[in-house]
């Protein structure tokens, strides 16, 4: 019997490797052929060929993104620059009476000077202090503010990647979410973003990759649409740039 959790994990790992061999051999024998050890040719990888080159011009991407995001219950604003984004967020904070704001520790947001623009709110910066219990800070926040890594017009989605400075909780736990989308990050197809993860390879991937396509929703009570059942109930996509 293992004494420590670490020992227990190691025992399980050894069992797992043995079992893995047996599992794979069993699969091969049920498929009535030898084990496949070399990467098989995969002629149908990814989207159909006609789709792989599909692309909308920029303005159409903005329009399609907006219309998809809105029909999922989100809000979209087209803003000329980051200064306008700051003013927009500040006005919303004023209007809704936001007291607690949490933002990612991203360079675009560091430069924004949100703290000065939101005199009535306490603005915390994700993971800027190792002593803090950050999940709780995000859970109590009225506003969460993030900059998207990508956005996809075809499905009306924003993509956020986790890191030391970019908490998964910031786009999840606050009541209202603001996602700033730099215009040049807005793609046409989901595949444009997904293929990038294949190209980057396993070791480059963050722990969390999240596609967000509107406010949290549920239709579990009599099919009646409910917004904000676990995640943010109000989501603003701010498309910035011209």
């Amino acid at each position: 019997m293992a004494d420590t959790h670490q020992q227990w994990l190691e025992q399980r790992a050894a069992e797992s490797r043995a079992k893995q061999e047996a599992f794979m051999n069993d699969i091969a024998s049920k498929l009535r052929r030898p084990r496949v050890m070399e990467k098989p040719a995969h002629p149908f990888r990814g989207a159909p060929d006609f789709w792989k080159a599909y692309e909308w011009p920029l303005e159409e991407r903005v329009e399609r993104f907006s219309s998809n995001f809105k029909s999922a219950g989100g809000h979209v604003e087209r803003l000329a620059d980051m200064e306008s984004a700051k003013r927009f967020i500040a006005a919303k904070a004023e209007e809704l009476g936001a007291h607690y704001v949490i933002r990612q520790n991203q360079p675009e947001l560091n430069e924004l000077g949100l703290e000065a623009a939101l005199p009535n709110a306490e603005v915390s910066v994700w993971n800027s202090d190792f002593e803090q219990y950050w999940k709780a800070r995000a859970a109590e926040a009225d506003f969460g503010i993030v900059v998207a890594d990508y956005a996809v017009a075809y499905t009306g989605s924003v993509t956020v990647l986790s890191s030391k400075d970019k908490g998964r909780s910031v786009s999840l736990l606050p009541t209202v979410l603001f996602v700033i989308i730099p215009l040049e990050r807005l793609k046409t197809r989901l595949g444009e973003v997904l293929v990038g993860f294949d190209e980057a390879g396993r070791e480059q991937l963050p722990a969390g990759i999240h596609f967000i396509s509107g406010p949290s929703r549920s239709a579990d009570i009599e099919n009646d649409l409910t917004i904000g059942v676990h995640g943010p109930g109000v989501v603003y996509a701010l498309i910035v740039g011209s």
């Binding site: 995000a138 499905t155 991937l205 722990a207 949290s216």
Partner: peptide, 24 residues
């Protein structure tokens, strides 16, 4: 499943939190 273009969340999770991450 539901006629959506994409579900509200699609999450790809690659391992536990990285040592420097503050959640996960």
């Amino acid at each position: 499943a539901t006629g959506q273009k994409l579900t509200v969340y699609m999450s790809g999770i690659t391992g536990p939190r990285r040592e420097v991450d503050a959640d996960g």
